[in-house]
Write a protein that binds this DNA or RNA. Structure first.
Lengths: 148, 148
DNA sequence: ATTGTTATTGAGACTCAGTATCAATAACAA
DNA sequence: TTGTTATTGATACTGAGTCTCAATAACAAT
């Protein structure tokens, strides 16, 4: 039997542990995030919810995103001139991003070697790394071909 | 004879080439940026200028920062909840950052090996990397010791 | 189930970084 | 010196995100 709301129990426990409550709104927001493809921004999420008749105010969306972030179920990938971009991290292991400057596509990649190298650089500097963000900007395969 | 306004000629040419003008305000802003220690944010820059009697409106500061960015003399390091952080790139070779979550200190580092590795990852993915940003968040040496 | 406590909600006011507007001014080429 | 027009500064505006607060709904205890 599949879990239809991945992360929901985790979020529920997180809330209960600190005397907070699981509400319809929070459940719906969580559901929408995990139904989606990965990356999302608060405003789109809000509009999407309006569209499907499931309701939660803009304020609740923002509040819930903050809670989910605290809880570790989502991460802020990037902050643009037009707001934040998040991604769900439940069931996804860490990865970094390549962002195509032409078409806006986001590629995810992971390199064990890269992780190890970063770790060893931190050690050399006496720095205790906790997390990192690497974004490589450039042209994806398709857009490179088009340019020729 | 030392160049008292590094990057000024470069910026001047950049402007002239596109029919734009070097003004007192722009010169002063550029000067203040290069007088500073490296990282800065628009609001602090504006306040700093007010303090020294050199004047330029907030609007001009923002406009000039956009131009300097286009021109490549400064880079946007990071966008926080409280605005952008820039750094001057004139005479600085590329580097990445470690950000201490405790004291807010920013360490710069550079690793040839890291650069090469990223390049080879891009090639594997058929991606043409143009630039990148790597931020490692954690605890600096001092703050680690304090915690013990 | 019912009740009491109190966290949460939603509407809208608010904050704050950054941009647009526009009349007055100042760069720059001729 | 003069004419053209990019730039300036004051201020209005925009848009993301937060705060406020009265009404509501979770949840624990009965």
């Amino acid at each position: 039997m599949k879990d239809k709301s991945p992360g929901k129990n985790l979020f529920g426990s997180f809330l209960r542990d600190r005397g907070r409550r699981m509400t319809k709104e929070r459940a719906v927001i969580l559901q929408k995030i995990f139904d989606g493809s990965g990356h999302f921004d608060p405003e789109s999420l809000y509009v999407l919810m309006r569209g499907t008749g499931l309701k939660a105010s803009r304020a609740s969306v923002y509040r819930t995103l903050n809670l989910l972030h605290e809880c570790g179920l989502i991460e802020r990938v990037r902050k643009t001139d037009r707001g934040s971009v998040y991604e769900s991290t439940f069931g996804h292991k860490h990865h970094d991003h390549m962002l195509c400057l032409q078409c806006g596509k986001v590629l995810e990649f992971y390199s064990e070697e890269l992780e190890r190298l970063q770790e060893s650089i931190c050690i050399k500097q006496g720095f205790q790394g906790k997390s990192h963000t690497l974004e490589i900007r450039g042209l994806c395969r398709k857009c490179r071909k088009k340019k020729k």
